[in-house]
Structures are given as structure tokens and as C-alpha cells.
Design a protein around this nucleic acid. Sequence first.
DNA 1: TTAGGTCTGTGATAAATGTTACTGTAGATT
DNA 2: AATCTACAGTAACATTTATCACAGACCTAA
Lengths: 211, 211
Amino acid sequence: MQHSLKTIFPNFSNELIATIEENGSLQDFEAGTILMRTGQYIKNTVLITKGKIKIYREGEDGGEFLMYYLQPGQACAISMICTAKSEKSQIMAKVVEDVTVMMIPLQLMDKWMMEHRSWYEFVIETYRSRFEEVLEVVDNIAFRSMDERLEFYLKRHSDACGCSEVNLSHQEIATELNTSREVVSRLLKKMEQRGLVKLNRNQIELLNFNH
Amino acid sequence: MQHSLKTIFPNFSNELIATIEENGSLQDFEAGTILMRTGQYIKNTVLITKGKIKIYREGEDGGEFLMYYLQPGQACAISMICTAKSEKSQIMAKVVEDVTVMMIPLQLMDKWMMEHRSWYEFVIETYRSRFEEVLEVVDNIAFRSMDERLEFYLKRHSDACGCSEVNLSHQEIATELNTSREVVSRLLKKMEQRGLVKLNRNQIELLNFNH
DNA sequence: TTAGGTCTGTGATAAATGTTACTGTAGATT
DNA sequence: AATCTACAGTAACATTTATCACAGACCTAA
């Protein structure tokens, strides 16, 4: 394996790593694949080792309201919560950059909680961080107007990729914020006039985003 | 004890109940008490045995955006998540009806996960149900307009109390939906005209809420 | 019963956002 | 080069929500 699990999940104990390698199955999925649908039953806990997955809530009109992204070293909190009770998922998960994931059968996820301290801590920390992220999302839509939300959205993207270019069309952004392209275009134009961004085709350069 | 823990938390094993009674401390709080503030460190996991607690997100302007209510038999998911890592809370918790809660020191909450299967299951189920509730909140503010959100809000209230009267002023409702009183008044009036509710002072009777 | 408070209703207006319609531009395809 | 398509900009207008202003209803306490 090119990148060992131990590198990606440094807090896992060696025994846990060994157990995962023995019992889990590595799978690849292409960008665009939908890994989880609203209402679907979940049979596995998913650990991301490569790529990027988008967790979103689907609107009746086809909106894809962004909750958060999952990246290497992270796990899908929903898949953990649901597997524990074998419940239906309430969200959608779509691959946005080709991923490799480690699938762990639900019984094991549950069993390891008792046997591996580092697994237990990882699961709890996953719950906590995802819960917090969703709370931040609520904050934004409840209290902020679209221009602030757009700024926050762009900031999250650049934080996530570590660069200052966001390669998305206005339409894609609009979909994830559940608004219309025109609104995004307008607001971006204003941001450009304020010197916050530079607009190119399919790309937004963030300039003074140190706030 | 008037209502035994076993009645309120029927899924707890007898040993767990005994351990809780031995190590936890019962405390009463009056309506209006703020049990948890944004940014505050959390030292206890909280089980509700009587009364009602409101979990909300505070806006800069004093808005109290409702996330959900906690009632007897439930526990504060945030307090569990945060205690596990002794993290700061990201929400506010306010007593809305005089409560009695069982406070459990954080080390025990963590320890019991390994020792008591019924505690483990309770914690996981708490995570799951609260996460889902927050997702539903996101759904509402992301995809629905104020009139739909108001209907949903009223429905949740009547579901929670089991009756069809909601005893709140328009101002209180507006605060929890982060809108203004006038908007709530107007929308309620329209709902009255549609025969959905009957409006009294400090009370809204739900009529045909079977949808 | 009067006075003061809270709660509710409603009109007028402003601001934010959504919608429609149209234009132009860059890049890909033929 | 001609054509096609996705993307971006923008004006005009509709709708929703927020804000301001004010009046009447109800309740409580003096």
C-alpha cells in the first residue's frame, strides 16, 4: 500500500491497524459516484484514505445543500451512527474527487468500540467534529445573509484544499448554497469590487481572506 | 424518589441504574436557568429526569435559534461529546420548565461506555437522534420558507407536549425562528384564515395538523 | 377605574433574494 | 471558420422577509 493506514490515521494503535487491514475492504470509487442516499440503509462504516467526499442534504428541487467534506483521515459520522442501530441515513454522500475508502462491516465497528481504545476515541472525535460542523452550518443559514455565507463558503473551500483558488462554476456554488446562479454572480462581482477575489472562468482567486 | 430512574430510562440495566444512583448527583434548576453557554467547558453529562431544556444557538443580536428540546429520558448529546474530550460547548442550554437532572462526571461517562452495554447504546442512540434532529433543522432553514418553517415549528411543539395548544407569544416564536414578531403575527393570521389554527392571547390552538 | 405593561394586528416601506430574459465570451467540436 | 455549449454578466421585475410606525386588546396593579 502506497500510503499506509498508520500514516493516514496516526492515532490508531498498531493492533487496531492490523485488525482493520484484516477485516476491512479497500474500495475505489470515481468522482460522481453516490455512496449514500437519503433513506438508504447503511451496512458499512466508511474511512476515507484518499480523495474527497461531499456530504449534503438533497432538496426536492435537486438542491445539494452542502454540509461538509470528508477527506483522508476522516470517517463518515452518519455511517457510524446509523450502523450502530442499522438505521436509514438522512443525507447524501457523493464522491467529488476519486476516493479510496476502507469499508468496515457494522458489527465490527460496534465490537471495536469495546476492544480498541483508539477506535473508541476516533469515533467520539468524529461525532464531535461533525456535529460541530453542522452546528456551524446552522449558524450560517440562520443568522447570516447570502453575502456572508458565500464568503464563508469560499473560505472553507480554500482551507480544505490548502490553496487560494476555488475551481467551481457559479452554478455549482449556487447549488450548494441553495440559491441561484445570478445571485452568486452578483455577490461575487461585488466581492471583486471590494478587492476580495479575482474572477476567472471556472475559478475564483481569493485575495485578502485573512479574516 | 418519586419517579425511579428505571421508569424514565427503561433501557438501562439494573447495574447501570445502581451505578448512576451511586455516582451521579440529582440537581434541580428553575425555569430560566442557563445550564450551558457557548464557549463554556463542560464537566458533566446531563440526564434529564424531569422538566424541559431548550438547546439553541445564540445569535449576536440575542436571537435564540431553536435546535431542539430535551425531555425526561433524554440526555444532552453535546455534553456527552464534549465531556469525552473536555471540549467547549458550541451551544446554549436553557431550562424552560423546572428540571431535575442527573449530573454524571465526565470520567464516568467515558468509563461506562466500556462497562455497560446499555449505557453505550443509550449514548449512541442519543448521538444519532440529536444529529438527525439538527439535520432536520438544516433542511428547514435551507429549503423552506418562513410559513412552512412556522408550521413545522408548531407541529414540533405540539408533538413534544402531546397537546394541541402552544402557549407562546408571537415574540417568543419569532426569537426561536430568528425572524420578527410582525412576520410571525402575519403568517399566523394567514394560517388562521386557512383554518389551521385558532389564535388566542399567548396561545395557539392547532386544528387540522394531520399532515 | 385608571394607568401601565405586554401582546397582537396591520399598513407602509425598505432591503434582500429569487426569477426571467437576454447578451456576450471562452473553449470545444465539426 | 462556423457552430455549439457552458459559463458569466446584468437589467428588470416579482416575491419574500425585515423594519418602522402606530393602534387596539387584554391583563395587572395601584
